[in-house]
Structures are given as structure tokens and as C-alpha cells.
Simulated assay, not measured.
Amino acid sequence: MKSKKSTIESARSTLKLEAEAILNVAKNLDSSFENVVTNILDCKGRVIITGIGKSAIIAQKIVATFNSTGTPAIFMHAADAIHGDLGMIQVDDIIICISKSGNTPEIKVLAPLLKSAGNILIGMVGELNSFLAQQADLILNTSVEKEACPHNLAPTTSTTAQLVMGDALAICLLEHREFNEQDFAKYHPGGSLGKKLYLKAKDLALTNEKPSISPEASVKQVLIEISKNRLGAVAVVDVDNNLLGVITDGDIRRMLENNVDIATLNAKDIMGKNPKVIDCDALAVDALDIIKKNNITQLIVLEQNAYFGIIHLHDLLNEGIV
């Protein structure tokens, strides 16, 4: 078994080789890359991405990145393509074929079939004199000097080069399409990332009760309202639903610690008069920012300056915003 030092050295050597491969991909970018981006932007169909072996796995990741950033894409396994899946290709589609060698048996069978259909064929290839490179209309150069594998066999630096080339394409296309945060949220509604981009303060407040009380309410009434709604706070409002203040369970504890005669107090006597608030149309992630900065657990939500509801830190935790 290797010593700890040699293990770390091995890992650093691998990472260094892969970093150099990425820099090499950047150095090799040329007008062909620009032409690929232009053709995809002009494409009226989809981007079909194909490959075999490890290149097929990279193809699937690039498809996922394209789809989530505004470029419609479909994965087609190179082996399945020659057994029926070629039918998924439509006349307006563009095809990206990924292969390190560009000379695998499946690619040699597939490439001429793709060409015969008249679609633009883009070869993401590591060997510029390969069969795929010769067949392709455009080439994305993902050449690497050697794999990180000490035997120069296991696809490592070559698949890294393919992966970053896919990312470079996706981001260039995203920027050309002016794909923004709102667009991104449409394609990521279910995850915490999407929720940060679309979930609003009112969406959270509507899931809670709306505790409120008049300024003349007794301390007993305040306690009942706070306990009943389990938000740890109650808003003090006037007859027009304008926010006057807020009373939290912390305010109640501090009042009791002062040994005052609670029989003589009303809600207006113990409320905080400058509570932290947020507009109902603000993003939930902004509510989290206010809660964190002010070290509080509840936040009052307003709609056109009128009391709308309360957000609790637990609401943000439950939605995965935190």
C-alpha cells in the first residue's frame, strides 16, 4: 500500500495533468469553435449529442447542461444509433459526435450515416487525422498529450477535455441568447437553486397563519395569539391593517424578566416598533439574507405597506433555501 505522501503526490499529479489538459483545450480554440456556436444558434432543430463508452457519459452531461441553459439537446448512444435510434434525428438537427480516437468501429459506421442524412456533423475529437475528423463538417479539438492514468489507457484527461469543451459551448450559447436568471429558474423549478430564483416571500407567508392583534390587546391575549399560531410572533396592527409593531416570544420573556405588572400592560407597551419587514414580491432568498443579517427568526411580510403575513426561519429551511 502506498504511503500517505505518495498518495497525495499521485493525486496532485493527476490534477496537474487534467488542469494542463484544460489549458490546452483553451489554447487550441479557433474559428472552428466560433462556427460551431454560430451554427447551433442558427439551428432550427435540436442538438443531438452522441458518443460511446466514457464519451457517451460526457455526452449525457453536456446534453443536461445544454437543456438547462436554453439549448434544446438530446442524447443518442452511438451503438444504439446504428440499431434504430437514428430515427430520432430530424432534418433541422445538428449532431455533435464525441470520440477521443475518432476511429472506433461504431463511429466508423455511424459517421457516414449521419453525413448521408445531410445534417451538420460536428466532431469533438482528440485525433485530428482520425476518421471522424475527416467526416465532420466542423471540429472541436479536444486533443490531450496523455491520460492521467499511468498506463495512458483509462480515459481521464481526455474526458476532462471533452467535458470542459461542452461547458464552454454551453456558456457561449447562454451568453449569446442572453439567458438570464428568470430563464434559468423556469428550467430548475424543483431544486433549491431554482427556488432561490423564483420563490417569493408571499409564497412562504401564505403557508402560515396570519397572527395579528390590536394595540390595546392584553398581555394574556398576546400570549394566546403567539402560542396558537406557533410562529413565535404576532403583528400589532390598526383597524386598517397597517403594521404598528411586532411582539415576539423574546419580547415576552424580556418583559417577564423585568418584573413588571403585566396587568397594566397592553400590546402597544411591549411591541417592537421598528420590526424588520420585506415586501411580499421580494424573493425568499432576500428574506433569508435579512434574517441572517439581523439574527432574527421571524420576518414581517408587507403588501403595499399593509400587513400580509409572517415568514419563519423554519419556512426557509423546509424549502431548502438555507
Rank of each mutant, 00 (worst) to 15 (best):
M1H: 14
I98T: 08
C97S: 14
S212N: 13
I321C: 09
A201M: 03
N24M: 02
C280P: 01
E225S: 06
S227W: 01
G70V: 06
E106H: 07
K115R: 15
N241V: 02
K5M: 04
V63K: 15
E303L: 10
V237E: 07
D203K: 08
K195Y: 04
P105M: 02
R230E: 09
L15V: 05
L17P: 06
R12M: 10
L206E: 15
V239C: 04
L113R: 14
I296V: 14
S130M: 05
G53L: 02
L153F: 09
D183Y: 03
S143K: 15
D269K: 00
T69S: 11
I40Y: 12
V222T: 12
I247L: 00
I74G: 11
I252S: 01
Y307S: 10
P215S: 12
E145G: 08
A64S: 15
I213E: 00
D183F: 03
A306G: 02
V237P: 13
T71A: 01
G320W: 04
R12E: 11
S218D: 01
D261R: 05
H77E: 15
T160V: 09
K27N: 15
L243D: 11
I310A: 07
V36C: 10
K115D: 08
L15T: 10
T156A: 09
N208L: 00
I22D: 10
I247C: 00
L110R: 10
G309M: 03
D42G: 09
N103K: 02
A21M: 04
I291V: 10
L23D: 15
T104W: 06
N259M: 06
D183P: 06
H77I: 04
A235I: 00
A267P: 01
Y187P: 02
A201K: 05
V285P: 08
H314N: 14
H151E: 11
R12W: 05
A148E: 08
V144S: 05
A154Q: 06
Q90M: 12
Q221A: 07
Q135W: 04
F179P: 09
K276V: 08
M165D: 13
